[in-house]
């Protein structure tokens, strides 16, 4: 199914068409800020040409969403499964509270990416950012994997302030030799070599499968900072029974 959206097409109409079609493949052309595309969707492959609006793929439940353009805020909010591929940048709160599935972004991502992402049993969400991430990356992270590759060419650092604040599970990999900003006391940083880390290699393989413009070997043959919660130094606000 091909939907020709334009600026006058309201999101509720667009999304009803996407929801109600029996076609497994849906292409949306000329998308211009329509929100909630592919919300809760499963069993479909949805290609968005243009700029989808906020909350793209919220509660996504297995569908694949490919964006040829930039995505806005709250992409993949509370997503449970499926894949979102963004050939461009993504806005703030990308992958908020996601529990499963994968988000691949060729460009940069905004503030609070991967905030409160979590893992559960066989569900291990993954967010891979080709460029850089804004402040509060992986805030309250409870599980899952965030990878930032730092291939941005604007000269700005790979992360900004407050990365991993409140992190209590999961892993963040940052492709850099040195952290550009301090991380909280409760988060531990260790050095890993990309090509010596199986988990990272396989994630980068997947990433490059979607974005052939990236050189896989170059990406992995570099130092990464691996951030994990420091189990020796947990968050323990001591409570007193009253």
């Amino acid at each position: 199914m091909i939907i020709d959206a334009d600026r006058d097409m309201h999101f509720s109409r667009l999304n009803a068409e996407v929801r109600n079609t029996a076609d497994e493949r849906v292409t949306i052309n000329g998308c211009l800020g329509q929100r909630y595309i592919a919300t809760g969707s499963s069993g479909k492959t949805i290609t968005v040409n243009g700029t989808p609006g906020n909350a793209l793929g919220a509660y996504l439940n297995g569908s694949t969403v490919i964006v040829n353009g930039n995505a806005q805020d709250a992409t993949g909010d509370t997503m449970n499964g499926g894949t979102i591929v963004i050939h461009g940048n993504s806005g703030d709160a990308t992958g908020y509270a996601m529990r499963g599935g994968k988000i691949y972004i060729s460009g940069n991502t905004g503030y609070r990416a991967g905030i409160h992402i979590k893992a559960y049993k066989e569900l291990h969400p993954v967010i891979v950012v080709g460029g850089r991430a804004g402040s509060f990356l992986g805030e309250y992270q409870a599980g899952g994997i965030i990878v930032v590759l730092g291939q941005n060419d604007d000269g700005l650092p790979i992360i900004n302030n407050f990365c991993g604040t409140g992190m209590h599970g999961g892993v963040i990999y940052l492709r850099c030799d040195k952290l550009p900003h301090a991380i909280p006391d409760q988060v531990r940083a260790e050095d890993v070599r990309g090509d010596e880390c199986e988990e990272l290699c396989s994630i980068i393989d997947d990433f490059c499968g979607f974005f052939p413009e990236f050189d896989r070997d170059k990406l992995v043959s570099a130092n990464f900072k691996k951030l994990t919660p420091d189990t020796d130094n947990p968050y323990k606000q001591l409570y007193t029974d009253n």
């Binding site: 909630y36 919300t39 509660y59 909010d77 409870a142």
Partner: peptide, 26 residues
């Protein structure tokens, strides 16, 4: 299991509207 004090995607009534409609769409 930590529930943060704010919703990190809600800073305004417009943002609240966004979450409401994402739930309605779902």
């Amino acid at each position: 299991a930590i529930s943060p004090a704010p919703h990190h995607d809600i800073y305004s009534i417009e943002d609240l509207r966004q979450l409401i409609y994402s739930v309605k769409e779902a």
